[in-house]
Design a protein around this nucleic acid. Sequence first.
RNA 1: GGGUGAUUAGCUCAGUGGUAGAGCGCUUCGUUCACAUCGAAGAUGUCGGAGGUUCAAAUCCUUCAUCACCCACCA
Length: 973
Amino acid sequence: MTMDKTFNAAEAEERLYRAWEEAGAFEAGANARDGAESFSIMIPPPNVTGSLHMGHAFNNTLQDILVRWHRMRGHDTLWQPGQDHAGIATQMVVERQLAEKGKRRTDFSREEFLKKVWAWKTQSGGTIINQLKRLGASCDWSRNAFTMSGAPGAPAGEDGNFHDAVIKVFVEMYHKGQIYRGKRLVNWDPHFETAISDLEVENVEVPGHMWHFKYPLAGGETYTYVERDEDGAVVLEEERDYISIATTRPETMLGDGAVAVSHEDARYAPLVGKLCEIPVGPKAHRRLIPIITDDYPDPDFGSGAVKITGAHDFNDYEVAKRGNIPMYRLMDTRAQMRSDGAPYAEAAARAQEIAEGADFTIEEVDSLNLIPDHLRGLDRFAAREQVVAEITAEGLAMMTRPDDPRLGSAAQKSAAPEEGGEVIVEDLVPLIEAKPLMQPFGDRSKVVIEPMLTDQWFVDTSQIVQPALDAVRTGEVTILPEADRKVYFHWLENIEPWCISRQLWWGHQIPVWYDEDGTQYCATSEAEARALAGDKTLTRDPDVLDTWFSSGLWPIGTLGWPEDTEDLRRYFPTSVLITGFDIIFFWVARMMMMQYAIVGQKPFSHVYVHALVRDEKGKKMSKSLGNVLDPLDLIDEYGADAVRFTLTAMAAMGRDLKLSKDRIAGYRNFTTKLWNAARFAEMNEAVGSTRAIPTPDATVNKWIIGETAKTRVDVDAALENFRFNDAANTLYSFVWGTVCDWYVEFSKPLLMDGDDATKAETQATMAWVIDQCLILLHPIMPFVTEELWGTLADRQKMIVHADWPDYGTQMIDADADREMNWVIALIDQIRSARAQMHVPAGLHVPLLVTDLGPAGRTTFANNEAMIRRLARIEGLTQVDGFPKGCVTVTVEGGSFGLPLAGIIDVDEEKARLEKTLGKLEKELGGLRGRLNNPKFVESAPEDVVEDTRENLALREEEEKKLRAALQRLAELG
RNA sequence: GGGUGAUUAGCUCAGUGGUAGAGCGCUUCGUUCACAUCGAAGAUGUCGGAGGUUCAAAUCCUUCAUCACCCACCA
């Protein structure tokens, strides 16, 4: 049988993966030794809507390396796969499909809609599984989990415990007082009409505008406004009948409950406790609001006076809570100005009573619609234009931008300096936009988030955060790299209540029922709630839970909790979590809190946080930039092994990796190199399935066994410490640089011209070495190694279950090591000299030697065939002195000459030797300088001093020989 | 505003106290029977600047500069 010249990845990968699956190679516990320790990893569940992107490829390659490594080591290994139901993202996909048919979600009942989502999930949810398989991920697919398995309405085949686990956790935490419902200001997404958490919004700065408006004082009252500079000198003093308010959101003026100034702001001190008028709305019903003090206003910013709109701004919300200021909600769920409730006049009248001190409740205030009738139903941005235009027309706008198209001609007039337009400004105004949603519809919704006062469910994180902090502080859970510990601590130490309710349909519906009076009944089922409620009519809370609430239970939920399962005992707590830095808060921190809160144990022992995959220019890959590299395309082009190896080799801890196709091509070449080394072995019958470590006589064979042992030790140490790139680079240089460049070349004369015994032991050694390469590479490059493993010999087991070696550095033969290093140095020197002297490749010349001692002579003789072949020389000739026109090379213990008179240029040789000498002298200078420094000899460790001395002696010897060679050249010239 | 990281060969990056490295690219040579997705040889660095600690600094400390990211953001 003849092997092809290259590995056909496209053909082999699917076949090999199928073979693994058919053999049950990835099942939990496969290849485990009796009584073996367990090793378990939970996959970060990709969104069920997702398709494999570079981040997944990176993340799962690293997991697969660890999993395959542990499995080969005979550990009881589990890689738990699964998908996340991804509330918003999934609902969005299905809603878009409906939109194409001109339908909306609300055209269907909740049950009908959910049926469609499930149908979509059943049909398309497996996409990412197949893509992970293409990458070679060795998950136990028989256990594939889903964060909504077992939910009501789930079709056949979607059964499981996850829903029950989620509900049980909610109920338990509710009854412990760790979950509560309350009216709070939350980030509201007006497009999806749901609350989202702080983590799901992104602050972006866009050019905006800050308006300054006059709020007239009640009853036409006036005061003296005095502004001073830093030294207290008066810079402005004038009578005013208004207070100036700056805002970026004029439309929210309709909901102002007060104006706040700093306690220390002398300018406004006379006004505190008085009323001012909101300069918007029908003149007959303008509302008056109190001027109060609070710590929040900064006297140096804007006018120093802040309007307080508790229902639509996070800072105002805090002020309003402190000062018992009513919070008037202005918009509906789509962020359009409210059109519900009583007419404006009625609401405004009631608001006026409240402003003047009447008692009120949050609910009552929330029911008041303070939108003037002509603005009702307008989009918030249209309302803003309208409000600005109206105020401006009244002459109450102080500063504005004359060219602002939203303002119209009235604005331009009012901005004229003579009419009190003080300064023309354009500020950067922070807006809050929705974060990018998940794949495949990755573009952000672009909708501007509206802070909205709504009833939501919260986890009181302050009650459950402590164990999550302690675990990392004490080292019970380790986080790598170190820098990410700080990120983790910082967030948890400043944690806010976690809003877990979402106004969606797709998700775990909150297990709380209300009776007519609004009393809550939290229970695991409606029957249970009914039992609590007696004969009252119950309605269930329509909200669903934040996706991260359920994925926070991923470790225990996938292992069968709340049942006390065998799996939990075997695989929990899990060993390692491998994840991207972008979900430390979303997921890692929450899993920590939740697992401790529910089962009182850590979810995992180690967290390895990896960085982002960027494009070759260092840009984040994004659809809008068009710089996305699709891992599946790359796998098609270069093979999964090359893609995996590239990601592994670039996985330096804590640093983003810039991916380029050149790099992948380079590692594809590496698979070809490995393939051809194996092909060479096969052609020379250096193959076999023996597992015993060979015990050869030939030095070169002893040497390569020691090199292999070093490599195994280094690879294990690297993987033990999550230094994936070290593992990859160690293997790369061993396979290419040591095995292919040297050992295979050394073996050729032995295999072709050696005696039978030498040939046989070399075949055996090479077979073993190649097998070791395959085994050690298998976790990183599973496909090509499995293919070669099967091609080279009949095996008892596939390589996926091959025994990971445990031999160590005791296999290094120090004499063999020294000898081969000498041989390699000699060959290097001769090659280098030949190349620089332009000696034709075809010319083999004798190697002359004057001063090689008996030991060197033996070493040379032992390896003569190899040296002759690789350095292209004829035999060794003892001479009394080198003839004229001889190229000289020096190695430890001797100098050699290549008689090339008439072929080489004497001047070139002289230049070459002088260059070598120059480098040598620089080095000698350094060495001598150090040894002449008494402090160095005193302070440096003994072995360092000793090494330096030895090195100096060697270099001095070399220097002598080089000088002699130069001397001969001089005589010649 | 707070925090974290980065700055090393033309490019992308390893390298946490002891003689500056890899891959890619570049130059020269090579059709020897594993591999041209290859081989051999070669050039290229005041390790961001400035101080300091040390016998010894790319590495530790201070400071500055530039870049990146994260968090919180003044109405």
